[in-house]
Design a binder for these strands. Structure first.
Length: 267
DNA sequence: CCCTGATTCGC
DNA sequence: GCGAATCAGG
């Protein structure tokens, strides 16, 4: 049960987190719950980032527990100097975040770091579907050759599909949208039987679906990520991709693997 | 209501 | 260490 937080996963978590994506978003992309994300983030030690609430005066359901701590004083003292997280994320730091927030969900991340989020979507932006919240700036300054991370050729055939992360130390190229949708779709159904309200799930699924389907035109350069997103050295392969694929021949080999294998591999 | 993140606590 | 349950602010 203990989810295995591999370096891979953690790296992605860190990256996405740093990008200012909401915990829920990250969770969705990693195929875990937001709680898992938050919990892990905490344990990982990374966790600055504006929180809607400050838990100084936590209501104790038990009234005493093990913390007699003077909440009042504590509350006063605690003032995270919250460094604008999203703010310092520049467009330069293009990353694999992609798929993130479709149109209907601006969420907190959008207003905060729209540029960062939108930028990577550049290729997709052509669709103009996802770019809704995107600030003109981001669109105006489209990366010369930074394609979207894996707008993987959804499913399609039967043999080859999805991604196999692990180019060197690089973060996985956005885990297959198909897979995500797949799981996401199944999860809520089984997981939230008590709540017959598909609203949230429905919306999310729809959003995701909306993003995936729009013909993701693979750009003219391989979008296999190299290096660590967020770091200066990060870049995409850039080689000429195979027709209809986002990756060049070499990386396509790495990227596309049997669906079965992927199951073990991803998420 | 919905969203969000934060903390607690059983596992 | 993990994450569901719970809490709490917008």
């Amino acid at each position: 049960m203990a989810m295995e937080w591999t370096e891979e996963t953690i790296a992605r978590l860190r990256d996405l987190w740093q990008q200012g994506l909401s915990t829920a978003e990250i969770g969705r992309q990693l195929s875990v719950t937001k709680n898992a994300v938050v919990g892990k983030a905490h344990r990982l030690g990374l966790k600055p980032r504006p929180s809607p609430i400050r838990r100084g005066a936590k209501a104790d359901k038990s009234a005493d527990k093990a913390t007699p701590a003077p909440a009042a004083q504590d509350a006063a003292a605690r003032t995270p100097a919250t460094p604008a997280p999203a703010a310092d994320v520049t467009v330069t730091e293009v990353s694999v975040a992609v798929v993130a927030t479709p149109a209907p969900e601006p969420t907190a991340a959008a207003p905060a770091a729209p540029a960062a989020v939108a930028a990577p979507v550049a290729p997709v932006v052509e669709e103009n579907t996802v770019s809704a919240p995107a600030p003109a700036a981001a669109v105006a300054a489209p990366p010369p050759s930074t394609p979207a991370p894996a707008a993987a050729p959804t499913v399609a055939d039967s043999a080859a599909d999805t991604v196999s992360p692990k180019p060197a130390a690089a973060p996985a190229p956005k885990a297959a949208p198909a897979a995500a949708a797949e799981e996401a779709a199944a999860r809520p159904a089984a997981k939230a039987p008590r709540k017959a309200t598909p609203t949230r799930a429905e919306r999310a699924a729809a959003a995701r679906a909306a993003v995936t389907p729009p013909r993701r035109r693979s750009s003219q350069s391989c979008c296999w990520p190299l290096g660590d997103p967020g770091t200066p050295g990060f870049h995409f392969c850039g080689a000429t991709p195979l027709p209809g694929k986002p990756y060049c021949a070499e990386h396509a080999q790495l990227a596309y693997v049997k669906l079965r294998d992927r199951r073990d591999n991803v998420a």
